[in-house]
C-alpha cells in the first residue's frame, strides 16, 4: 500500500472518530438534560404531600384530586421506558397542579395560609427550573437531530443506529394552567 493510500486511510479514521465522538457527546448531553428534567419533576412531586396536607385542611372533600395527585407522584417513581413516559408524567402532573391551584382559588383562607404561600413560592421556582431543564433538553435534541440527519454525520449515525428524537412538548390543556403569580398576587 502506497504512502498516499495510508495517509488517506489515516485521515478517514480521524474524521470518523471525530464524528463518532461528537455524536456520543450529543447523545450524552441529551441523557444529562433528561436526567435534569427527571430530577426537577421529582422535586416538584416531592411538594405533593405537603401541598395535599395543607389543602386538605380547607378542602377535605376534594379527596379524588388528592388521590390522583398521589398516584401521579407514585407514577414518577416507577421505571421509565423512555422520554415519552417522562413527558406523559410531566403533562399529567402539570394538569394535576393546575387543578389543585384552581381549587385553592375557591378558598380565600387557604390562599392566605403562610405554609401554602411558601409552597406556592417553591412550586413557582421549580416550575421555572423545570421549564429551563426542558429547554435545555430540547436544545440538546435539536443539536443531536441536526447531527443525525446531516451530512456526513448521518452515515456514522446510521451505523450506530441513532435515530431522530422528539422534543418535549407541552400537553394540550397545560398551556391554560393558572398563573400562580397572578392568582396569589405579589408575595412580600
Amino acid at each position: 500500500m502506497s504512502l498516499g493510500w495510508l495517509l488517506l486511510l489515516g485521515f478517514l479514521v480521524v474524521v470518523v472518530s471525530l464524528i463518532f465522538n461528537s455524536l456520543i457527546a450529543k447523545k450524552n448531553e441529551i441523557e444529562n438534560a433528561l436526567g435534569a428534567v427527571h430530577s426537577y419533576l421529582q422535586k416538584r412531586a416531592d411538594l405533593i404531600p405537603n401541598l395535599v396536607a395543607t389543602v386538605k385542611q380547607y378542602a377535605a372533600h376534594e379527596s379524588n384530586l388528592f388521590k390522583e395527585l398521589t398516584e401521579a407522584r407514585a407514577a414518577l417513581g416507577r421505571p421509565m421506558t423512555g422520554e415519552g413516559d417522562l413527558q406523559a408524567c410531566d403533562s399529567l402532573m402539570s394538569q394535576m397542579f393546575g387543578r389543585l391551584i384552581a381549587v385553592a382559588e375557591n378558598y380565600p383562607d387557604l390562599k392566605a395560609n403562610q405554609n401554602f404561600l411558601s409552597l406556592q413560592g417553591s412550586l413557582n421556582e421549580i416550575e421555572g427550573q423545570l421549564s429551563a431543564a426542558r429547554r435545555t433538553y430540547n436544545a440538546a435534541v435539536v443539536q443531536y437531530n441536526n447531527a443525525v440527519e446531516g451530512i456526513p454525520t448521518v452515515f456514522v449515525a446510521k451505523v450506530l443506529g441513532y435515530r431522530r428524537k422528539a422534543v418535549f412538548q407541552v400537553a394540550p390543556g397545560v398551556e391554560a394552567k393558572p398563573d400562580l403569580a397572578q392568582l396569589f398576587g405579589q408575595v412580600s
Partner: peptide
Amino acid sequence: DNRAWNRSSVQQK
C-alpha cells in the same frame, strides 16, 4: 422587581 415568589422564604425552606 417581579417577586412572584419570595427568594428568602424558599432559601429558609
